[in-house]
């Protein structure tokens, strides 16, 4: 099942990229399309943050992951690079679980 998902994602993501390079610009270059494309990553990534931090299968839980997210937020406010943000969150959760 995971392999199927990997290959579907690979084929689909490549075709989405190729589509943009291949079709005449005026077909998709519409303000509405641009607004949708702008909002999709925002909404999906925000939902992913929430689920990754609070969900445990079908239950909601407050645990070390929330502390990790808070530290990541502070790191982002301080304009830390991506790797530092991710590492700081992992380290926070790991230390809390010692």
């Amino acid at each position: 099942m995971i392999w199927t998902a990997v290959l579907v994602t690979a084929a689909g993501c490549y075709l989405l990229k190729l589509l943009g390079l291949s079709v005449p610009g005026r077909i998709l270059d519409h303000p509405f399309v641009r607004r949708v494309a702008d909002l999709i990553p925002v909404a999906l990534l925000a939902a992913l943050v929430a689920v990754q931090v609070f969900a445990d299968e079908t239950a909601l839980r407050f645990d070390a992951r929330l502390a990790g997210l808070a530290v990541a937020g502070v790191a982002l406010l301080l304009r830390a690079p991506f790797l530092v943000v991710v590492f700081a969150a992992a380290l926070t959760a790991a230390l809390l679980r010692l």
Partner: peptide, 29 residues
Amino acid sequence: VASGGNPITGAVSALLLGSRNTLYGLRLA
């Protein structure tokens, strides 16, 4: 997958996120 979801649901989320690359392609062409 990490949250215990169906990998195909994950693939659909991944494709939606990948749709912005289509618009990048339009600008780059």
